[in-house]
Design a protein around this nucleic acid. Sequence first.
DNA 1: CAGCATCCCTTTTGATACTG
DNA 2: CAGTATCAAAAGGGATGCTG
Lengths: 131, 131
Amino acid sequence: MKQPPVPVKPWPESDPAVDALVTEVIGRVADKWTMLVLEVLADHSELRFTQISRLVPDVSQKMLTQTLRQMERDGLVVRTVFPVVPPRVEYRLTDLGLSLGAAFCGVWRWAEENLRRIEAARAEFDARQKR
Amino acid sequence: MKQPPVPVKPWPESDPAVDALVTEVIGRVADKWTMLVLEVLADHSELRFTQISRLVPDVSQKMLTQTLRQMERDGLVVRTVFPVVPPRVEYRLTDLGLSLGAAFCGVWRWAEENLRRIEAARAEFDARQKR
DNA sequence: CAGCATCCCTTTTGATACTG
DNA sequence: CAGTATCAAAAGGGATGCTG
């Protein structure tokens, strides 16, 4: 049984150049803060800076700024500055960002569904290490 | 239009304790090397240490070891040591790991499909920064 | 409010050498 | 082969002060 029952990768990508690019993109997008920011923006449609910082636990303003800039650069997010005082800046997902959110949907569901299994696996692993 | 056309998060999780755990799990799993190792293991069913290091570009042996240990601890991977010399160690996904691979499938497809869009967005962003 | 800049410390990562 | 150990470099992250 060489092949898993469900194909986990849609098509076996063989072009090394494309593969390298995909790897690079995955490396960028598969980031803790990126995913968490993506999640809250996917849920709320548009948010201000401080709202995001409240919704994403433990993110520093430095990392949040950095993450949002990166996402903006990658075309995942649009940043709208309202010329008012005090300043008002809103973030919302682009279509591209929305599609990434949809792609990550399965991962969030997986995480929720398998919390217990993971905790159990860790406990067992740690117990085995002690012996 | 508050809600995006496609629900990106399956159900609006409100329990703060569960949410924190999900966040923690996402933070662990949404890791560059974890995703890349997951991908090659999903493709090959079982692999030896050096095979993985060849298939995952630019991973150091230290990071690979660390990632594999983490994945083993989380119950995503089984590590089989054959008591021969030279040593032979094989890695394969568990059912849990396989299900995570299936969940990530959409992300890989997304990355492949949107390479160009991301590159274009970056180019445009960088050009705008210069002005 | 939404940041950028700076300083400073901690964590992560990478390169190298060594071992059962 | 499949690691572990070690050290140096880089990235991450907090705190504070300052702007438009």
